[in-house]
């Protein structure tokens, strides 16, 4: 199982690298679809069918929106010669990556080996959850019963994002 997921994540990394370096913006957007749809397969392998259903539709809608933005604009990204600012940002990126690598190396040792055990929190959510919530789908039970506050907060963020989009797009720009 770990090997299969590793291969798919490797493909996702290749797709991400191509999406970042592609010259045509349309092919960059479509290459970013590799990452999203690869994530769907990972979710299916990791026994998370709820997430797979959401992710496959969300990825499609994201691609439609991105293509609609990119389609009738200048799609060629102009790669000019690297200047001082470009070097500075590249050096910053390398420095940040080294620092984050160090911290991840420390923190990954605190995690259990992949697939051996779940978090301690899983026990109370699985034991007797069906009697408490009456729901056969444990994820729905957690989303709307044990963690109802979270869901209400996320729904509020969704409303706020929609209001933000409407505000940005309805402004009459100064001529």
């Amino acid at each position: 199982m770990e090997l299969a997921i590793s291969v798919i994540v490797g493909l996702m990394i290749l797709g991400a690298l191509y999406a970042i370096h592609a010259k045509d913006l349309l092919s960059a957007v479509i290459a970013s679809g590799i990452v999203g749809y690869g994530l769907v397969i990972c979710f299916l392998l990791l026994k998370a069918p709820d997430l797979a259903i959401v992710q496959i539709v969300v990825e499609t809608i994201t691609l439609i929106i991105m293509v609609a933005v990119v389609f009738d604009s200048s799609r060629e990204e102009s790669f000019s010669k690297p200047d001082t600012q470009g070097y500075v940002s590249a050096i910053t990126a390398v420095f940040l990556i080294i620092v984050l690598f160090y911290f991840f190396k420390i923190s990954v040792s605190a995690l259990d080996v992949f697939g051996e055990s779940t978090l301690r929190m899983a026990g109370p959510y699985i034991e007797g959850a069906t009697e408490k919530t009456g729901s056969a789908n444990l994820v729905t039970g957690v989303v709307f019963d044990f963690r109802g506050y979270d869901t209400l907060g996320e729904a509020t963020v969704l409303v706020t994002a929609v209001l933000g989009v409407l505000t940005i797009l309805r402004l009459k720009g100064k001529k």
């Binding site: 997430l51 959850a129 989303v143 929609v162």
Partner: peptide
């Protein structure tokens, strides 16, 4: 069973991700 708590957290986060990306 697989741990349902991370799945529940990610389930809402994916939809929020769509909204923020479109913003």
């Amino acid at each position: 069973y697989v741990d349902p708590l991370p799945q529940a957290l990610v389930l809402t986060a994916i939809v929020i991700g769509l909204a923020t990306t479109s913003m």
